[in-house]
């Protein structure tokens, strides 16, 4: 039982990291209807710049600020050079354009910073500690970094919630998410709104990148880990912030439990595909996701 709980907590905490990446997707999808395949590449891109600045001897805080500036600039350029030219194109074209962005960012980041694995050490704790001593007669080991990540993710969601509900920009964002045309007609500048969401998604990406980077080192595979955010979105629905969180936790826990309990039966390394399979089977029964609304088709 204790072992089960340990696997479960480990999975849930990894899931938090998936949620962090998925959050970036949801923000952009809500505000612009763009399914941003490049969110994973943005995580890697932000982490590369952050760790790159640190390695150049820039203090941590300043590195973070510089990286945020880079992500804002990136959002501006993406809006200017890509999205503004693809307004009114079909959603699938925009999606493929973000695959292009993803490739570009992966290549660009590594051209500048190289492709060696970089350790990211900004003093986040790395040790495992004993948690809930003797639950059912045994100890549960939990990685401290994962707990920090969970706390950070929680804080980030809280900040975003306040940002969305209390600020003027947040209200405009929600208006845009509900109806592009109507939002424009009351004078909300669609393009700057898009730039803002992409910038916010970039900053969320930076946070995710720091957490993942501290765990695995900053390397190309971050971009692939981020692909796991896709099944998370499917479970949670593309437009729901709570959905992204719950979906992340489910995927994280599900794949860890599957690996530990199912792996020995059908062969290991099922973590590679379990999340996608889970999402696919889930879709067959509930195409709109956990928190999505039932779709009424019209003609």
């Amino acid at each position: 039982m204790a072992f089960f709980l340990e696997v479960l907590t480990g999975g849930l905490l990894t899931g938090v990291l998936y949620s962090l990446v998925a959050l970036g997707f949801v923000l952009i999808f809500k505000a612009s209807g763009v399914f941003n395949f490049a969110q994973g590449a943005m995580v890697l891109f932000a982490a590369l710049f952050f760790v790159g600045f640190i390695d150049l001897g820039v203090p941590v805080v300043l590195s973070a600020i510089l990286t945020i500036a880079v992500m804002i600039l990136l959002a501006y350029l993406i809006e200017r050079l890509v999205l503004s030219h693809l307004v009114n194109q079909e959603a699938i074209s925009l999606f493929m354009a973000t695959i292009g962005i993803s490739y570009f960012l992966d290549g660009f980041g590594q051209t500048i910073w190289g492709s060696d694995i970089r350790r990211l050490d900004i003093g986040l704790p790395q040790d495992a500690f004993v948690f809930g001593a003797s639950v059912l007669g045994d100890d549960i080991f939990v990685n401290e970094l994962d707990v920090v990540a969970a706390v950070v993710a929680g804080a980030l969601v809280a900040v975003l919630a306040v940002f969305f509900s209390k600020t003027k920009i947040g209200r405009a964002l929600r208006a845009v998410a509900d109806d592009h045309q109507a939002a424009m007609s009351v004078g909300i500048p669609l393009r700057s709104i898009w730039m803002i969401v992409w910038a916010v998604a970039g900053i969320v990406g930076l946070v995710a990148g720091i957490m993942w980077g501290a765990k695995l080192g900053v390397q190309f595979s971050l971009s692939l880990v981020a692909l796991k955010a896709l099944p998370v979105l499917i479970l949670g629905g593309f437009t729901s912030v709570p959905g992204a969180i719950v979906g992340g936790l489910m995927i994280g826990a599900g794949e860890k439990l599957a690996e530990v309990y199912l792996g020995p039966v059908i062969g290991g390394a099922i973590e590679d595909w379990f999340a996608y399979m889970l999402a696919m089977i889930f879709l067959l029964f509930r195409p709109q996701g956990l928190f999505g609304e039932k779709i009424i088709e019209r003609i």
Binding site: L86, M96, I99, I101, F104, D106, G107, F108, T111
Partner: peptide, 17 residues
């Protein structure tokens, strides 16, 4: 390799636009 990634990405965007 990295340049290739960049150019592929840029080309995809270019063509879609």
């Amino acid at each position: 390799t990295h340049l290739q990634f960049m150019i592929f990405g840029a080309l995809i965007i270019f063509f879609l636009i």
